[in-house]
Write a protein that binds this DNA or RNA. Structure first.
Lengths: 131, 131, 131, 131
DNA sequence: GTGGTCTAGACCACG
DNA sequence: GTGGTCTAGACCACT
């Protein structure tokens, strides 16, 4: 798997890993049951600290996107992915809200915003068939 | 102005202030030229330190949403608000991407997402006339 | 005299006044012996505080660009303007240095810098005949 | 790194630090990727508060001269330095203008000014090879 | 009165 | 160990 890290970003590295893996799942490049690299391997591949990778994996487990077994290590969730329940949608809304507010300040129309998110959505989702 | 802070949130207080003011501008509850409370006043109103408020104001100034002068204090930008230029849209896209990826993991359809963001957009924008 | 103030600038207003008057002298729009507006008049014309204008005038007097008499009020220096002595050149150099250093960081050539300052120099100086 | 501070100067300490580092970059005593002292170290070396150093570093980051990450601390920008674009040249011009105007008041010729700035330019730039 | 600067000391997140 | 955040309190410049 290719994970692009930006060590200069103000986004914590473990968050970048989480995001990268989530995008991998969304793109269906990572399938349920598929094992992720071991903490040691990924850390050395990325040239970062063990703890950082571990923290990312723990967060993914916590949110229900992966399972951690002794045998197989870390694998993508084989049971159902966490659902888009009301609680999640509310959290998502709270994350979206300040982004939308700032966009409105900059006079973006709803159409422009929808267009932008559709573009990104399709770019992620559309990768399904090809990759 | 009504600014709801969550001191327990992992979102820095100064960011919450920035977001709150941006939403106030988006809602047109704050108009160009309108003065914001002085750092000392807002700090004591919110029960926080004046440096925290100042940091929020500095960020808003830096991003072009407010102007600061020693006489009037801090006022909403009277010249044009910063535009939704390509650079901004790219930044917005990068903020949107992980949110969309996670939503896709949870099997949200594009329609559901669009519906959610439209709801929030209209909730903010729709406040224009009423408040 | 036309003095353009930017109340939003982070340059103090009294400094803007000093700069404006110095540029007026450089452009020879203000001649030795010519009276400047009274503190009260200029303050009310510019819509600013008396103290602010006074501070600017005091600084100009301090640096030898104007004289202050009871009768005529504030007039442009009739004796010789302060000379470009070694002390002044050193002060100027210290002001120039950080500007040049930053320009070098941005890979400006000496020629580009000389061109820029010549342009400004001639723009000010060239106004002599016409205005 | 040698940073000379004048605590009595009316130039803020954090600005002096910024200027000193910019000059270090211009002199090529500081190379891209090279780490700067940690805020705590530099603060104790200079005998000032760490927040003052931090403010300087934040400004340098904001202007694109350094990168900050939690692992390495603060390092000189490894990507391209910010360019001398039109916006920068305009800002530079506005900083140069009052200096030139005052020099004209003191009857400095364009040649004298060019000579002075060339001297400083070469003094900074000429340090490249030697230091 | 305003914001700007500086100091001092604390705790936390990240790696 | 690093920087990030927050608090607290001081003095100064500007208006």
């Amino acid at each position: 798997m290719l994970l692009q890290l930006d060590l200069q970003s103000d986004i914590p590295i473990y968050t970048q890993i989480v995001n990268g893996i989530l995008e991998g799942i969304a793109r269906k490049q990572l399938h349920p049951g598929e094992p992720l690299p071991s903490v040691r391997n990924l850390a050395s591949d990325l040239g970062i600290n063990l703890h950082t990778v571990n923290k990312a994996y723990q967060q993914l487990k916590q949110e229900g996107y992966v399972q951690i077994n002794r045998k197989q290590g870390v694998v993508i969730q084989t049971a159902a992915m966490p659902p888009a329940d009301e609680k999640y949608r509310q959290k998502l809304g709270e994350q979206l809200r300040p982004l939308l507010a700032e966009a409105i300040c900059r006079d973006m129309s709803l159409e422009q915003l929808q267009h932008l998110s559709e573009e990104i959505y399709r770019e992620i989702k559309g990768a399904e068939a090809n990759e």
